[in-house]
Amino acid sequence: MTSSMIGIEAAFIGLTFLLAGFVKGVVGLGLPTVAVGLLGLVMPPAQAAALLVAPSMVTNVVQLFSGPRFGQLLRRLWPMLAAICAGTWLCAALVPARMMVHATAALGVALVLYAVVGLAAVKMTVPPAAERWLGPLAGFVTGAITAVTGVFVIPAVPYLQGLGLDKESMVQALGLSFTVSTIALAISLAMGGALLHMPVLGASVLALAPALGGMFIGQWLRHRISVERFRRLFFCGLLVLGGELALRGAF
């Protein structure tokens, strides 16, 4: 690869994480979805997921400690969080390497499903009695999808939205779920060797700066624009991006 191509790729990665961080700053989620989706246009999903680790970890930890209910949420959500780890590691260990050639298509399908759910404004309600079994189920499926695509929003986000949390608790619960998902993904990638290469580690750390910059800009802009309008544009963009990845991965 020539130096000019390396420069173009580095600029694309930086702009991608700037945009992904901006989206997260405005709507509270979307960094891994936007980053892995756009990076999936130029690299395999596993490589995109490896670049995601540092920016996702730091921005999610910042979001996690933005509220006072960490202990309360941890006690309530630990079955789902444990299942996320189990699903990620089990799927990563059991899915044959030859199946990973379909990861791009799987990522596209995951993005399309997420966009459709978002545009339809589907709001599920989780009865308290169902949390005991539905939480671990949602966590395990989320972990399995994370292992293949690097995206950890489906079905964790709709499940958390169905718990009826207040806005502050919801933002903190998302940060908790995403932090655990990122840790599980990082361990899975490290065990598979994807994080053992210094260039990947270095690129992931360098991507942290634009991600944090975009996040702070998005937070500043959050109170100055219609979040609902932005969410619709965000999901429409994901729908187009996911469709393109699904079609490209299928052929």
Score class of each variant (00 low, 15 high):
residue 75 R to T: 05
residue 145 I to T: 10
residue 242 G to W: 00
residue 153 V to Y: 04
residue 227 V to A: 05
residue 143 G to A: 08
residue 46 A to M: 13
residue 176 L to G: 09
residue 227 V to W: 01
residue 160 L to Q: 02
residue 169 S to K: 12
residue 13 I to P: 00
residue 223 H to G: 04
residue 87 G to D: 12
residue 205 V to W: 01
residue 101 V to N: 13
residue 241 L to Y: 04
residue 81 L to S: 00
residue 10 A to D: 05
residue 6 I to R: 14
residue 20 A to M: 03
residue 250 A to S: 15
residue 201 L to R: 06
residue 69 R to H: 15
residue 71 G to V: 00
residue 203 A to P: 03
residue 59 T to M: 01
residue 158 P to F: 07
residue 152 F to V: 12
residue 89 W to V: 02
residue 178 F to C: 03
residue 81 L to T: 00
residue 50 A to H: 06
residue 226 S to Y: 09
residue 151 V to Y: 01
residue 217 I to T: 04
residue 236 C to A: 15
residue 239 L to K: 04
residue 159 Y to R: 02
residue 30 G to R: 04
residue 173 A to V: 01
residue 89 W to R: 07
residue 28 G to T: 01
residue 75 R to M: 05
residue 245 L to G: 00
residue 12 F to Y: 08
residue 225 I to Q: 04
residue 245 L to T: 00
residue 217 I to A: 13
residue 153 V to N: 14
residue 132 R to E: 14
residue 154 I to P: 11
residue 249 G to H: 10
residue 167 K to P: 03
residue 237 G to V: 07
residue 110 A to H: 01
residue 229 R to C: 04
residue 189 L to V: 06
residue 144 A to D: 09
residue 45 P to R: 03
residue 35 A to K: 04
residue 122 V to K: 02
residue 117 V to D: 15
residue 229 R to F: 11
residue 105 A to K: 11
residue 126 V to A: 12
residue 197 H to S: 12
residue 235 F to H: 13
residue 168 E to C: 06
residue 73 L to M: 08
residue 51 L to M: 08
residue 76 R to H: 10
residue 35 A to V: 02
residue 147 A to M: 06
residue 35 A to R: 04
residue 206 L to G: 01
residue 74 L to W: 13
residue 30 G to A: 11
residue 43 M to H: 02
residue 70 F to D: 05
residue 217 I to E: 03
residue 23 V to M: 08
residue 234 F to W: 03
residue 127 P to L: 05
residue 232 R to N: 09
residue 119 L to Y: 08
residue 229 R to K: 08
residue 231 R to K: 10
residue 162 G to S: 11
residue 11 A to V: 03
residue 87 G to M: 09
residue 246 A to W: 11
residue 237 G to Q: 07
residue 8 I to D: 01
residue 150 G to Q: 10
residue 154 I to R: 07
residue 128 P to I: 07
residue 245 L to F: 00
residue 92 A to L: 11
residue 161 Q to G: 14
residue 7 G to E: 06
residue 224 R to D: 02
residue 18 L to K: 08
residue 24 K to I: 00
residue 133 W to C: 12
residue 139 G to F: 06
residue 168 E to I: 10
residue 226 S to G: 09
residue 131 E to M: 10
residue 104 T to D: 07
residue 30 G to W: 00
residue 248 R to C: 06
residue 40 G to L: 06
residue 241 L to R: 02
residue 57 M to E: 07
residue 54 A to P: 05
residue 173 A to S: 05
residue 244 E to S: 10
residue 38 L to D: 02
residue 64 L to A: 14
residue 170 M to L: 15
residue 205 V to T: 03
residue 220 W to P: 00
residue 219 Q to G: 05
residue 99 M to V: 06
residue 243 G to A: 08
residue 78 W to V: 01
residue 26 V to L: 12
residue 84 I to E: 01
residue 184 A to G: 05
residue 146 T to D: 11
residue 134 L to D: 14
residue 198 M to V: 15
residue 54 A to I: 14
residue 234 F to V: 14
residue 251 F to H: 15
residue 198 M to N: 07
residue 3 S to K: 01
residue 183 I to W: 09
residue 244 E to F: 11
residue 175 G to K: 05
residue 249 G to I: 04
residue 70 F to N: 03
residue 142 T to I: 12
residue 100 M to Y: 15
residue 190 A to M: 10
residue 59 T to Y: 00
residue 251 F to G: 15
residue 60 N to T: 12
residue 27 V to R: 02
residue 124 M to W: 12
residue 108 G to N: 13
residue 240 V to Y: 04
residue 147 A to L: 07
